[in-house]
């Protein structure tokens, strides 16, 4: 977080630079089945973010050392394409990507019925094609849809969104400038039906009251996005009846 308090990102009427009010999320659209050769796939267009997820598996877990005797492992790879950001990203190992891969796997493992596939792995490939803050959230959301599309059994679907604070005002779903210059960032991953959290990170500075507002903003975004996930899966799985 930059915490550059002098960058004006919300005016006196509560309108943000991109025209949204404090509680609004960016425009979202979701499509499933977009990678024909994968077992399951999805894309999430969230603001300017464009994130794609493909699922392959279950398959035998190789190398041996990653195998678990009693369950499947989720082999998640989150990656940003070289052309996804204004400054090109050199392909190769990236610590941030590795961390995001890990927390994404842990979020999804909380809903996937992994005990049904001992010694297997389920590959989840998340590729950020275009980035605009909130890529890890869009990635988790896309991965949920891709897993469902691949017929992987899950107890729930996970929706992820990040709220934060800019110029002292708590807002929902930070965009790029808000993420760069704001004072706090709270990404969460929530199960659509149970409301339970499977993913949680935070950095910045939020008072107890501000924290609650940010939390609530995230929670309010879950249902609308969940509807879009269901609609995406219906459109590509003949459920239009």
């Amino acid at each position: 977080m930059g915490g550059y308090g002098d960058v004006q990102m919300i005016d006196d009427n509560g309108i943000r630079v991109d025209g949204r009010t404090a509680g609004e999320i960016r425009p979202v659209s979701i499509n499933a089945g977009i990678i024909p050769v994968a077992d399951g796939s999805a894309e999430v267009i969230w603001g300017t973010n464009h994130v794609i997820a493909a699922v392959y598996g279950p398959m035998e877990a190789h190398p041996r050392k990653i195998q678990k005797q009693d369950r499947a492992v989720l082999d998640v790879r989150y990656n940003m394409a070289p052309f996804s950001t204004t400054d090109r990203i050199r392909p190769g190992f990236n610590r941030r990507s590795r961390e995001i891969s890990k927390v994404t796997a842990e979020a999804l493992e909380s809903v996937v019925l992994t005990e049904l596939y001992p010694r297997s792995k389920i590959r989840v490939e998340i590729e950020v094609i275009t980035a605009e803050a909130g890529t890890r959230c869009a990635g988790i959301t896309a991965a949920s849809v891709a897993l469902a599309d691949a017929g992987i059994p899950m107890t729930d679907m996970v929706i992820s969104v990040a709220s934060g604070k800019i110029n002292g005002v708590v807002v929902c779903d930070l965009n790029k400038e808000e993420d760069n210059y704001g004072e706090a960032d709270l990404p969460m991953g929530v199960c659509a039906n149970s409301g339970e959290l499977v993913f949680l990170q935070m950095d910045g500075d939020l008072s107890p009251e501000e924290f609650q507002i940010a939390w609530d903003y995230n929670m309010e975004a879950i249902a609308p996005v969940h509807e879009m996930m269901i609609d995406a899966l219906k459109r590509s799985n003949g459920g239009d009846e």
Binding site: I35, V37, A38, D39, I52, A54, Y56, M59, R77, N79, A81, P82, P91, R123, E125, E127
Partner: peptide, 10 residues
């Protein structure tokens, strides 16, 4: 630079 990552095939 060509990227052929695991996303595109099993």
């Amino acid at each position: 630079s060509a990227e052929v990552r695991p996303v595109c095939g099993v």
